[in-house]
Amino acid sequence: MTTRIEVYIKENLVDAAGDGLLKDIEDLNITGAVGARFIRVTEIEGRIGKKQAQRIGAELLCDPVSQEFVVGTISGPLTKGAWIIEVRYNHGVTDPVSESTMKGIADLGIAGATAAGTATKVVLRGRLSKADVDLISRKLLANNIIQSYTIEKN
């Protein structure tokens, strides 16, 4: 079973990575992007209970001062109507963050996790075509040598 935890910057705070992406999109001569937020995705394989997932999110993955998290996939106003791009490492590429996550889960005394993986989810708003979002994904977000990506309209 896969437990998914998504961590994101609080909506009232600046998402510096998102703002940087908007500037880079302008450099691509793509107009129309008005908002970008980054969400860090962690997927844990194994038998992890709801309470344990909450603990992992709160005590390991999330900085409570600037971030919030959900167990599962975030929904609601943050993502509604936006383009969602998810970038993840190809199979076999070393993912040091997932290795540290496994160690952190064990340090919390939580047994049952057998593997972890990470991905980056980008929420993109504005008047953008699928072709625009695909170009943004290829040129700015995913490196096809080591990563792959998916695009969805929420």
């Binding site: 070393t94 993912d95 040091p96 540290s100 040598i145 080591i146």
Partner: peptide, 15 residues
Amino acid sequence: EVTSSGAVQIGNAIV
């Protein structure tokens, strides 16, 4: 980028 992808490495500073 295709033929030499094996030369790409990812580091793990913690290790």
